[in-house]
């Protein structure tokens, strides 16, 4: 306690701290020194904490590689697994190439339809990532908007939004997703459903995660709205909307970034779960979850590779993204450590 002002703030991370430290034990760079933007970023505290954590670097590299391969799947993949013309049923159920019956054309084997497993996984990861990213963006936009309104406006707006969020939170996300997907499947034709499935997934998964964003943003907004810089903007005569957008929003985005990262992992998992349960993407356009689902039918026939490899990719991807999220949380919020 003694040194709250003088010592505790010595911790080099975090905007809040740097602010208060500026006068007592200032650690920020001198204002007289001008530096290139690149150097400023490279030398920033967040970047430093990244550079000094090996686990984070590995996680970042793994994530980057998976993202790269998935995004450029059409160019990187050795085969085109969804082009019926290139598929030969004779190649079905081949084990990985290092096994006795393996074929050098198919590095980690083929599935029951003769598609190259590696290529299928790359395309599947791509679908998983698209669904994951879009869901998080959807949840983020909805959640941040509502959270900001809730926190800044208060009163009935706040009460209403927060009650809805609480109801939403009290129902397991996967259940909401199942319910929504199931209902839709009953309402529209199977073809239309298959076409719209990605958007349906984004909607359902996004809906299940927005309350987290809303609650976090509301909390930070309640703190920020009473800070003097917001009061100053009000005295200047800035409109409510401008204050929310230009003053409050940039200052509440730190925790949002953390939640977004962690929720990306959750969204990918949810999508996989839904697909595994059969309400996700169809086998003609398989995601990682669909692949695992299909593969598990053959697990006991000794065709382990069909389910193990997509499973491993999913596990590694989710772990890496989660590690990045953890690091981001620590780096942006040193008080938690």
């Amino acid at each position: 306690m003694w040194s709250i002002r003088d010592c505790a703030l010595i911790n080099p991370l975090g905007a809040d701290m740097a602010e208060q430290t500026a006068e007592s034990l200032p650690l920020t760079e001198s204002p007289t020194r001008t530096q290139s933007t690149f150097y400023r970023i490279w030398d920033s505290d967040v970047c430093y904490s990244f550079r000094s954590s090996k686990v984070t670097i590995v996680a970042a590299v793994v994530t980057a590689v998976i993202f790269f391969l998935a995004i450029f799947a059409p160019w990187v993949a050795p085969h085109r697994p969804f082009d019926v013309a290139t598929i030969d049923l004779m190649d079905a159920e081949l084990p990985p190439s290092w096994e006795q019956e393996g074929d050098s054309r198919f590095l980690i084997g083929t599935d029951n339809l003769g598609r190259d497993l590696l290529s299928t996984i790359l395309y599947g990861t791509r679908i998983s990532l698209i669904v994951g990213f879009l869901s998080v963006i959807f949840g983020l936009v909805v959640g941040v908007t509502l959270g900001l309104m809730s926190g800044y406006m208060g009163g009935y707006v706040d009460a209403f939004i927060m009650r809805v969020a609480e109801i939403q939170l009290s129902i397991p996300g996967i259940l909401v997703a199942l319910l929504l997907a199931g209902t839709l499947r009953g309402v529209i034709s199977a073809e239309a459903y298959n076409e719209a499935i990605i958007y349906v997934l984004v909607l359902t998964i996004g809906t299940s995660i927005w309350p987290q964003f809303a609650r976090t943003v509301r909390g930070s907004t309640l703190v920020e709205r009473n800070k003097e810089y917001v009061l100053a903007a009000r005295v200047i005569g800035l409109s409510r909307f401008s204050i929310m957008l230009r003053h409050v929003l940039p200052n509440v985005m730190g925790p949002v970034l953390v939640i977004a990262t962690i929720n990306l992992a959750i969204a990918i998992l949810t999508e996989a779960t839904l697909s595994f349960l059969g309400v996700g993407v169809p086998p003609t356009q398989p995601s990682l979850g669909t692949l695992i689902n299909e593969g598990q039918n053959y697990l006991f026939s000794g065709l382990w590779w069909i389910t193990i490899f997509p499973g491993a990719v999913l596990a590694i991807l989710v772990l890496a993204v989660n590690l990045l999220g953890d690091w981001l949380r620590d780096a942006l919020n040193p008080k938690l450590r």
């Binding site: 003097e228 005295v235 005569g237």
Partner: peptide
């Protein structure tokens, strides 16, 4: 009338938007 008045606040660490 509002533009004719301005306010100066107490806490110089909170009264300027850090971003």
């Amino acid at each position: 009338i509002q533009p004719h008045m301005q306010m100066i606040f107490q806490d110089p660490f909170a009264s300027l938007n850090p971003r």
